[in-house]
Design a binder for these strands. Structure first.
Length: 119
DNA sequence: CATATGACGACAA
DNA sequence: ATTGTCGCCATAT
């Protein structure tokens, strides 16, 4: 897989994170099929094309902390966007237990046909 | 080819 | 809770 394809898969995965939920860099890597690629996710997000509509702000460190340093514009921007998503940000971090994105569950909610077809 | 660099992560003090 | 160390891995130089 080449560099571009890998970044696109990462971007697509990030686009799948619903508003109100967040994911860690490592989690995005796994879902995107890039094992141990947490750093690659960071790379891909740092190289987003202009005019993109990728919800990059929903990606946090595994600890729930925002990856940027506290006094940066990016830090403030991410905080602002998370709040607009109704995600609580306390001291630069969000409660992963509470907001963690669960792809499998979403799959059930969005493609319910096979799930409760029990009749 | 050899090093340096990160929007990372796990773990030990 | 913080901080430091180390492992990881694609890019950059």
């Amino acid at each position: 897989m080449d560099r571009i394809a890998r970044m696109q898969r990462i971007w697509e995965t990030v686009c799948d994170i619903p508003k109100g939920k967040v994911a860690s860099y490592g989690q995005v890597a796994e879902v995107a099929g890039v094992p141990r690629g947490a750093r690659q996710v960071g790379y891909a997000l740092r190289h987003l094309p202009d005019q993109h509509r990728v919800p990059w702000h929903r990606v946090l460190q595994a600890s729930g902390k925002i990856a940027f340093e506290k006094a940066t514009p990016a830090y403030r921007e991410q905080t602002k966007r998370l709040l607009m998503d109704d995600v609580a940000v306390i001291a630069g971090r969000v409660d992963m237990q509470k907001y963690r994105w669960q792809p499998d569950l979403d799959e059930l909610l969005w493609k319910p046909s096979a799930a409760w077809d029990q009749s």
